[in-house]
Design a protein around this nucleic acid. Structure first.
Length: 107
DNA sequence: TGGCTGACTTTCG
DNA sequence: ACGAAAGCCAGCC
């Protein structure tokens, strides 16, 4: 297991409550050796990892592309709505407002 | 060793 | 504006 998975999990855990981020943002934060796909790949391995709010990680459009990987496809949306994030048609409303950029917030 | 895959992103047609 | 393709890198046959 590569360490970079752990890095991804760490960044995801740092996402504040009621905020979301994108795969690309995490990739950009971790470095050039990281690609957006790798973040998704890392999240795939996040199954069984506690305290990893994968529901706060969406694609650049704010679309819940990974919802199907949860226990139930609607679980991701329910978790986001529970945190005060409106989700319509599997897409986060006002995504730019809820967006949390690690490269900026953790700078 | 070599090639396929993946919860993405960007760009060209 | 929409669709298709390439690029990215690590893990797993």
């Amino acid at each position: 297991m590569a360490d970079f998975f752990n890095d991804v999990y760490d960044v995801v855990r740092l996402i504040p409550y009621g905020r979301v981020t994108s795969y690309g943002a995490i990739a950009q934060y971790l470095g050039t050796k990281m690609s957006a796909r790798m973040v998704g790949w890392a999240m795939n391995a996040a199954h069984g990892m506690p305290n990893v709010p994968a529901h706060r990680v969406v694609n650049r459009q704010g679309l819940l592309t990974g919802r199907f990987h949860f226990s139930t496809p609607t679980k991701m949306q329910e978790l986001l709505e529970k945190e005060g994030i409106a989700v319509v048609d599997d897409q986060i409303v006002n995504f730019d407002r809820f967006f949390w950029n690690p490269s900026f917030e953790l700078l």
